[in-house]
Write a protein that binds this DNA or RNA. Structure first.
Ligand SMILES: NC(=O)c1ccc[n+]([C@@H]2O[C@H](COP(=O)([O-])OP(=O)(O)OC[C@H]3O[C@@H](n4cnc5c(N)ncnc54)[C@H](O)[C@@H]3O)[C@@H](O)[C@H]2O)c1
Ligand SMILES: NC(=O)c1ccc[n+]([C@@H]2O[C@H](COP(=O)([O-])OP(=O)(O)OC[C@H]3O[C@@H](n4cnc5c(N)ncnc54)[C@H](O)[C@@H]3O)[C@@H](O)[C@H]2O)c1
Lengths: 209, 209
DNA sequence: TTAACAATGTTATTCTTTTCACAATAGATA
DNA sequence: TATCTATTGTGAAAAGAATAACATTGTTAA
C-alpha cells in the first residue's frame, strides 16, 4: 500500500465505489474500465491507475468483477461500520446537509448537532437534537467522533474549529468562507460555494466568446 | 494576457479579491504578498504568480495597493454589472443556496427558480418566485442568463442540464451526484458533497494513526 | 492446440502546477 | 548621496497529475 494517496485519487475511488454499488443494484456482475470510466467522466487509463492503489486486479477478458472491486475499495478505505460526524451551525445550509446525510443515506451518520441560537436548541431536526454549542465538550467525549462539519457564519468558524480540534476531531468540512488554522494532524476540506460560483461565472463568460 | 488561466488560479484570484474587499472595509491601503497569502492559506510565491496574470504590479517597498489590485482583479474578471443565474430544484439545498446568494450578497443574483413539484410552484421564497420547471423556456429567454445551478435529484439532473444548455447557459453548478454530459462550450462545476465527506473521513482516519 | 483478440497492469512520457531562487527595485537611513 | 533592507516579478527547477504506450494475460474460436 502506497503511504500516501492523492486527494484526487481518493475522490475518484469514492466515486467508483458509488457507481459500483449502483451496478450491483442493477445486478451487473462485470464491468470494463472504459465503461465505468465513462460513467464517472474520467478516462479509462486514469481509472485503471487509480484502481492500482487498492490492489485489486481485474481480468483482461471479463473486466472487473463488480462485487470484488467494490469490496476492494471498501477495504482500502477501511471504514468498517460507517463513520459518524457532528455538525455545528443549524442554519439553512446545516439543515439541508443534515437532511441529506441522515436521509436514506446509509453511510456517515451525523450523530450530534450544535447551534448557539437559543431558539434552535433542543429542537429535533431530521432525527437529530440540536444542542447548545457551548456544551460540545460535555455531549461528545474526546475521540468519540472523527469528522465534523462547520456551517456557522464566517466570523464564528475559527472558534468552532478550535473546539472541534480540542474534541479530537481529525477531519473538518468547512463551509464558511474563511481559511481555518488547524494543527497539521487535522485535515480540512474547504467548500466555498461563492468561489465556485464565481469560477463558473468566469468560465461561462469565457465559453461564449 | 495568457489565453487560458487555470481553474485553480481563478479560484484563488477570486479569493484574493474577496480578502482585498475586506481589507478595504477596514481601511487598509497596502498589503504584502505574504500577508495576503497567509489570510488565503497559500504561499506568497503562489500569490505573486497568480497576480501576474491580472497584469497588476506592486511596489517592492509598499507591497500591493489594496484598492488598485482589487480593481485589477475585478477588471480581469470583466464582470461589469454582476452576473445573474437561475436555479432548478427548490428542495432543501436549493432553498439554502437561494437564501445565501440572494441575501446580503451583492454579486451574482439568482433571478429565477424552478421546480417540478406543484406544491412549490408559485411560492415566493427569498424574493424569488418558484416557476414550473417545464416552463423554463418560456420564462427565461435564450441567452438571457449565462449561469445555472442544479439542485434536483440525481435522476433528473441530466434532463435539467439539457434544458439549461438549450437555453444558452454556459456555466453550470451541479450538486447532483452524477456526471453531466454537456457540449464542450459549457463549463460544469460538479460539487459532490458526499464524495467530499468521504474524502474527509478517509484523511481523518489517516491522520490519527 | 494454437492463433487472434480485447482488456488489463504498469512503465514511460507529457503536461500542469507549485516551489525555489534571485536579480531588480523602491523606499528608508545615515 | 550612497548604502542597506525588504519585497517584488519571474525564469528555472521540482513536484505532481494525467495521458499514452505496450507487454502481458485470460478467453474465444478456428
Ligand atoms: N446557505 C448556503 O447555501 C451557503 C452557501 C455557501 C456558504 N455558506 C456558508 O455556510 C455558513 C452557514 O450559512 P447559512 O446560510 O446556513 O447561515 P445561517 O445564518 O442560516 O446559519 C448559521 C447558523 O449558525 C449558528 N451559529 C452562529 N454562531 C454560532 C456559533 N458560534 N456556534 C454555533 N452555531 C452558531 C446560527 O445560530 C445559525 O443557526 C456561512 O458561513 C455561509 O457563509 C452557506
Ligand atoms: N441537501 C444537501 O445538503 C445535499 C448535499 C449534497 C448533494 N445534494 C444533492 O442535491 C440535490 C438536491 O438535494 P436536496 O436535499 O435539496 O433534495 P430535495 O429532495 O429536498 O429537493 C429536490 C427538489 O427538486 C425538485 N425536482 C425533482 N425533479 C425535478 C425536475 N425534473 N425539475 C425540477 N425540479 C425537480 C423536487 O420537487 C424537490 O423540490 C440532490 O441531487 C442531492 O443528491 C444535496
Amino acid at each position: 500500500m502506497p503511504s500516501m494517496v492523492s486527494e484526487k485519487t481518493i475522490e475518484r475511488l469514492s466515486l467508483f465505489h458509488r457507481l459500483l454499488k449502483d451496478l450491483q443494484d442493477d445486478d451487473v456482475t462485470h464491468v470494463y474500465s472504459h465503461q465505468l470510466a465513462t460513467k464517472a467522466g474520467v478516462t479509462a487509463a486514469q481509472l485503471r491507475r487509480d484502481v492500482m492503489v487498492v490492489g485489486y486486479t481485474g481480468s483482461p477478458s471479463k473486466g472487473y468483477d463488480v462485487k470484488q472491486l467494490s469490496l476492494s475499495i471498501a477495504n482500502f478505505f477501511e471504514d468498517p461500520e460507517g463513520e459518524t460526524a457532528v455538525l455545528v451551525g443549524m442554519g439553512n445550509l446545516g439543515r439541508a446537509i443534515l437532511a441529506y446525510f441522515n436521509g436514506r443515506r446509509p453511510k456517515l451518520h451525523i450523530v450530534a448537532c450544535f447551534d448557539s441560537d437559543p431558539h434552535k436548541i433542543n429542537r429535533v431536526i431530521h432525527n437529530c437534537r440540536c444542542h447548545p454549542s457551548d456544551k460540545i465538550g460535555e455531549i461528545v467525549s474526546k475521540g468519540e467522533v472523527r469528522v465534523g462539519a462547520i456551517t456557522v457564519p464566517a466570523a464564528a468558524a475559527q472558534k468552532v474549529a478550535d473546539e472541534l480540534v480540542a474534541l479530537g476531531i481529525k477531519g473538518i468540512m468547512n463551509f464558511a468562507p474563511v481559511h481555518l488554522k488547524v494543527p497539521p494532524d487535522v485535515f480540512v476540506e474547504g467548500i466555498d460555494l461563492a468561489l465556485s460560483l464565481e469560477k463558473v461565472a468566469y468560465f461561462a463568460r469565457q465559453k461564449n466568446k
